[in-house]
Amino acid sequence: MNILKRGQAGTMQSSDLMVIVEPADKLIIEIESTVKKQFEHLIRARLEQVLDKFGVASGRISISDRGALDYAIEARLETALQRAGGA
C-alpha cells in the first residue's frame, strides 16, 4: 500500500505508543522511546515486519513509545497505516 496522507494512532500513555505515518520519498523510520537503549532494535524489527506485510515501501514512520509490548506496536502501526489511506 501507499501512504497517501498523514495517519496517526495510539496515545502517550504508559505502555502505549503514538504512531504517525506521513508520505515521503523513501522509507524513514524514527523511533523515540523511553526504553530506546534496550529495545530500539526489537521495536524497529517489529515495525519493519508490519511495513513488509502491508507492502509499504516509502513514508515517514515516527513513533514515540512508552514501553509498549509487541502486539500494541503492531496494532497501532496497522491502524495508523489504514488511516493514511489504502490498506
Binding site: Q8, M12, Q13, S14, M18, I20, R66
Partner: peptide, 17 residues
C-alpha cells in the same frame, strides 16, 4: 495516573492535526 498522558495525547494530536 493516566490523566497527564491523556491530556498530553490530546494536545499533541490536536497540534499535529
Amino acid at each position: 495516573g493516566p490523566l497527564l498522558g491523556e491530556m498530553a495525547t490530546a494536545l499533541v494530536s490536536r497540534g499535529l492535526d
